[in-house]
Amino acid sequence: MHFTTLLTSTLALTMSVSAAPTPVPATPENTRYVQLRLYSDADCGQDGNLGELGVYGDYVNKCNAFGDYTVESVRFEAAINNCTVSVYTDDACQAGAQGVALDTCLSSSTQYGSYQVFCSQL
């Protein structure tokens, strides 16, 4: 009787340990290098807050369009590895380039269409 109870308890413990999630190792593709907050109005006003944009490795060192969002201001909230951010007035990272400093709001009277995150380590 005790043997059956012990065996059942051991099997239950083994099953619960094996069901634990396996942590995903950090890779450049799943590392968040930059966090931006986008706004649909000037001066990073709370009423126009579109939410945060986490930029992961697949989107670093290349042009990325904001898509259907109307973005008039951008706050550069956080970065790792000394990454920098530039925003552009077109969708192809060609026109109206402006750098965004960390912990600041970049605002313009024109709409931003795209961004680039530059990380020299990648």
Rank of each mutant, 00 (worst) to 15 (best):
D103A: 09
D43C: 01
V117S: 08
D91Q: 12
T110Q: 15
S18L: 11
G57R: 08
I80W: 15
V87H: 05
S114G: 03
G99W: 06
L13V: 14
N81I: 00
N49H: 09
C44V: 04
G57K: 10
D41S: 12
R75G: 01
T8Y: 02
G96S: 02
E72C: 11
F76S: 04
N81E: 14
C105H: 04
T22D: 09
S73E: 06
T8P: 06
T4V: 14
Y115F: 15
C83S: 14
T22S: 14
L50S: 06
S114Q: 02
V87D: 05
R32F: 00
N30S: 08
P23A: 00
S18N: 03
L6K: 03
N64G: 03
T84G: 08
G99I: 05
V85R: 05
G45P: 10
A20M: 15
G48C: 13
L50R: 13
S109H: 02
Y115R: 00
G67I: 03
V17K: 01
N81T: 03
Y88L: 01
C105F: 04
F66Q: 04
F3T: 14
S18P: 02
S107D: 03
N49R: 13
Q35G: 01
M1K: 12
S40Q: 10
T4Q: 15
Q46P: 00
L7V: 10
Y59E: 14
A42N: 08
L11R: 00
E29V: 04
T89V: 04
C83M: 03
S120G: 01
A12S: 13
T5C: 07
N30Q: 12
D41F: 01
A12R: 08
Q35P: 01
I80S: 14
V17D: 01
Y56A: 09
V17H: 02
D68C: 00
Y112S: 03
V55F: 14
Y112G: 03
N49S: 12
E52I: 09
A26Y: 11
Q111C: 07
A97N: 09
A101R: 09
G57N: 10
N64T: 07
A79D: 06
V55M: 15
A20K: 06
L38C: 01
G99Y: 08
T104V: 05
A12P: 08
D90K: 05
G45L: 13
A78R: 12
A65S: 09
M15F: 03
T27D: 13
T70H: 08
T31F: 02
V74P: 10
N61K: 12
Q98C: 10
T8I: 10
T22G: 04
N64P: 07
S108C: 01
L122E: 07
T5L: 09
G96P: 06
